[in-house]
């Protein structure tokens, strides 16, 4: 049976993980490779690296990191953050990433989805959508949630899939950072309107939240950062708990 995926997200700046990481057993908690290895050993099903570097050295740094991750980690990983051209995608894929995640650049230039899908296949293209409830409508935001758009989340997800996105990474800005659970309604709305895998993101605080999103929506993956970084939840415990609750888990 196909397993639901637990996906830790690592925010990377200048080649180092940010948001303090509190692993006692890790010598250098800022080293993304160390953290990625740790997660892979604990049973993470995939990893997402989100590059938040804002300098011109950016592409070189992230490409070097991807090369190192690919040499060390034998589970799939996605790289996102500031990928705005086919050339950006090429350098990251050639360095060994399995998937590319695009967000703002896909909104500004939807053809980028087509270009990356044609070059590497749809399975390599993850459309990341940041959404917020505005006057009863789940609207899409860009630039890390700073800029509103006129797009609605369900429609944009469907359009992205039509253009060639092979997966949707859906983050609820209302829930992100609250630790109050995933946004079940919009996750269900998006995951039932597209025929590609949907990863729920934003709001994970308890093991029960993962159970809710897997039992009440069609999402096949759940992403979280801080609950794993701070070891409020360990991946091992989480997977055991989900298995006990009859969720299909590796």
């Amino acid at each position: 049976m196909l397993k639901k995926r637990i996906i830790p997200c690592l925010d990377v700046k200048d080649g180092r993980t940010v948001k303090g990481v509190h692993f006692e057993s890790i010598k250098d908690a800022g080293d993304p490779i160390e953290l990625a290895k740790r997660y892979a050993e604990e049973g993470a099903d995939e990893l997402v690296f989100l590059d938040i570097t804002a300098t011109s050295e950016k592409r070189k740094t992230i490409t070097e990191l991807v090369t190192k991750v690919a040499a060390e980690i034998n589970i799939p990983f996605t790289v996102g953050g500031g990928i705005s051209s086919l050339e950006d995608a090429q350098s990251i894929m050639q360095a060994g990433a399995d998937k590319i995640s695009i967000n703002t650049s896909a909104i500004l230039n939807p053809k980028l989805i087509v270009e990356i899908a044609n070059e590497f296949g749809s399975q390599c293209v993850v459309l990341a959508i940041d959404t917020k409830l505005v006057d009863g409508e789940w609207m899409v935001f860009r630039n890390g949630g700073k800029t509103a758009t006129s797009l609605k989340a369900v429609a944009w997800a469907a359009e992205g899939v039509r253009l060639g996105a092979g997966e949707i990474l859906l983050t609820s800005m209302n829930h992100d950072g609250t630790k109050s659970g995933f946004a079940l309604d919009i996750t269900q709305a998006v995951s039932t309107s597209v025929n590609v895998p949907v990863i729920a993101s934003g709001g994970a605080g308890l093991k029960e939240h993962f159970l809710d999103v897997f039992s009440q929506t069609k999402a096949t993956g759940a992403l979280a950062a801080s609950v794993f970084h701070y070891q409020q939840i360990t991946i091992k415990d989480l997977k055991k708990y989900l298995k006990e609750n009859k969720i299909s888990i590796r």
Partner: peptide
């Protein structure tokens, strides 16, 4: 056939 999510993506037995 499009009876479930395609591509088949993830860990399976």
């Amino acid at each position: 056939p499009p009876k479930d999510i395609v591509p088949h993506t993830g860990w399976n037995t």
